[in-house]
């Protein structure tokens, strides 16, 4: 770990301002991903801005009948919230499918959105990786790509977004509230929050330099039956091969987003028209532009079969 300086921010706007003013600054909340990456020098921030004291740790009801989740609400608390469990079951299920109890106690709502890929070549500094070292190439596309993206990738990068929480938020049409260094606030739709790699895989989100996540908003509940089916090689504490976040209404209509398949939570709204006709109708359209490797091709039938399992459960 390289030496770095550290400060505790006094307010969200001050944090954003400090981040913009200090070259190489990063925010730290739970630190569950950032500290690991710093030990490997994959992240080497010159300055850390600790946002843990910013009182962004409450869940409030909004005027629109939804929820505003503070960026510092811990995963454990968010998953256990009575309102979330009642009205946004897919979110609770997604969160408890991820990581371990210890990590969920530390990890925050905002930090979890910023979780970086688990691509094996991103994690090995001896290997080329356009995300870690822009322009160095991608070792994964011709390499060990079993866990990587089947859609949304580029010739520069096929890393997957590894998280679960954001997949549920995507299906819930969440919004990401932020504050910029100049004090301006905005809400970024979750659909636009994570970026596809294109030829700049090192740029992973729509956040401007210094911009700080302050909350995630959920619109008013949409009802329906909520599912999060995470398929993985072992029963717990593993990243998804494929996950399905779905809300299915009584008439068979619904919404679905997929995790583990793309550089961002993968949802194609137009494909959801096929929900009542079964999984294939949805996945055929949602993955129409898929470009899998030989090693991860299985994710396409797996995505269909997992959605099929969810729909069968919804019918039962």
């Amino acid at each position: 770990m390289r030496p770095f300086t550290y400060e505790r921010a006094a307010s969200p706007a001050a944090a954003a301002k400090a981040a913009a003013a200090t070259p190489g600054a990063k925010f730290i909340a739970g630190g569950t991903n950032l500290l690991d990456l710093m030990k490997l020098e994959i992240e080497a921030p010159a300055h850390l801005i600790d946002v843990n004291g910013l009182k962004l740790d409450t869940i409030e009801e909004t005027d629109e009948g939804g929820l505003r989740i503070g960026a510092l609400v811990r995963n454990t608390d968010l998953a256990a919230d009575r309102r979330v469990r009642r009205d946004y079951g897919v979110l609770t299920r997604a969160i408890v499918a991820g990581a371990s109890g210890q990590l969920r106690n530390k990890a925050t709502t905002g930090g979890n959105l910023m979780q970086r890929t688990r691509c094996p070549y991103f994690y090995d500094p001896n290997m080329p990786c356009n995300k870690r070292k822009p322009g160095s190439g991608c070792a994964a596309i011709q390499g060990f790509s079993r866990s990587l993206a089947v859609i949304g990738g580029s010739e520069a990068c096929i890393a997957t977004y590894p998280g679960d929480m954001a997949v549920a938020m995507r299906v819930l049409d969440a919004g990401v509230e932020t504050v910029k260094p100049d004090g301006e606030t905005r809400t970024i739709p979750i659909a636009d929050f994570h970026r596809l790699p294109g030829d700049t895989p090192d740029v992973e989100t729509a956040l401007d330099p210094g911009e700080l996540i302050t909350a995630v908003t959920l619109p008013k509940p949409v009802g329906g039956a909520h599912f999060y089916h995470k398929v993985r090689d072992r029963a717990s504490y593993a990243f998804a091969l494929v996950s399905v976040a779905a809300i299915v209404q009584k008439d068979g209509s619904g919404r679905v987003a997929f995790g583990g398949v793309a550089p961002k939570p993968w949802r194609v709204e137009a494909a959801e028209a096929g929900m009542s006709q079964g999984a294939k109708a949805v996945t055929a359209q949602a993955f129409a532009d898929a470009n899998p490797t030989r090693e991860n091709r299985f994710k396409l039938p797996l995505a269909e079969r997992t959605l099929d399992a969810v729909l069968a459960q919804a019918r039962a």
């Binding site: 094996p120 070792a139 060990f144 717990s236 504490y237 593993a238």
Partner: peptide
């Protein structure tokens, strides 16, 4: 241990990627 046959090493060289059984298994 997944062999990267181009670079000649075990690519999944940490416990997040080399999955041993956990309690739930």
């Amino acid at each position: 241990l997944v062999v990267d046959k181009r670079f000649g090493f075990f690519a999944n060289h940490d416990l997040a990627q080399y999955e041993v059984m956990v309690h739930a298994d």
